[in-house]
Every structure is written in C-alpha cells, then in structure tokens.
Nucleic acid binder design. Structure first.
Length: 108
DNA sequence: GAATTGACGTTCT
DNA sequence: AAGAACGCCAATT
C-alpha cells in the first residue's frame, strides 16, 4: 500500500458516483476512515478538477454547492448537476437526501 | 521552517 | 436555538 494516497482514494470514490447522484465530503472521508478530515476531500477534489473527476457531484453535508467557485465559473457546477437531472435551487440541491449516494452503503 | 488558509463537520458554549 | 471554537492534514505564502 502506498503511504496513504488519500487523494487517489477520493478520486476512485468520486468516479464511482452514478449519474444523477451526489455525495458529501464527510461521507467520502468517513468511507476512507479519515472522518473529520473532510477538508482534505475538498483539497483532493481541487486537484481532481484537472482530471476526469466529476467533482460537481460532491457537495457539503447540506447539499450546498460550496465549491462552485472552483469550477471556473459559479454557474458551471449548477449547470452540470441540472444536466444530470438534479434540481438545484440557487446553490442548494433540492431533495438532497434523495440524491445522496453514500459509499459506505452503496459500495461497502 | 513557522504561520495561515482551506470545496467541512462536529462539539462546546 | 444560534453562534463560536476546534480538529483534520496538506498546501501555500
């Protein structure tokens, strides 16, 4: 095993997120066993922007598009989510619980 | 090398 | 109930 490729693990999980689904930083962090370091997930995704990682499917615990500003343009993230059939109001995902994809439940 | 910040979340006050 | 503080760990300055 590597010396904790936290980032790479995050990429794996995010890439496994089905279309029309979303997850939260904490969920990924907990799945990786690094609960509490949800911030690192954000950092990881920051690097994922230049990769093939659909980071727009990852939001904070309340379904708020906190990282929209990192997509180059604030509306980019919202547009991407809506393209997948997810209803987004301002910066908040509607029925977040319904779209929530928990790796601990789906993958575990 | 120390201090600060950051796409969060939990817990204490 | 609402607000403030802390913890996580890496990257940037």
């Amino acid at each position: 095993m590597d010396k904790t490729s936290f980032f790479q693990d995050v990429y794996e999980v995010v890439k496994l997120i089905p279309e029309g689904r979303v997850t939260s930083y904490g969920a990924i962090a907990q799945y990786l066993g690094t609960a509490g370091s949800a911030r690192m997930v954000g950092w990881a995704l920051n690097s994922s922007l230049t990769k093939d990682i659909p980071a727009h499917r990852v939001v904070n615990r309340i379904g708020l598009l906190t990282g929209k500003k990192h997509f180059g343009h604030p509306n980019r993230m919202k547009e991407l989510l809506e393209q997948e059939g997810i209803r987004v109001k301002d910066n908040r995902i509607q029925e977040f619980e319904r779209y929530f994809w928990d790796p601990k439940k789906e993958l575990f």
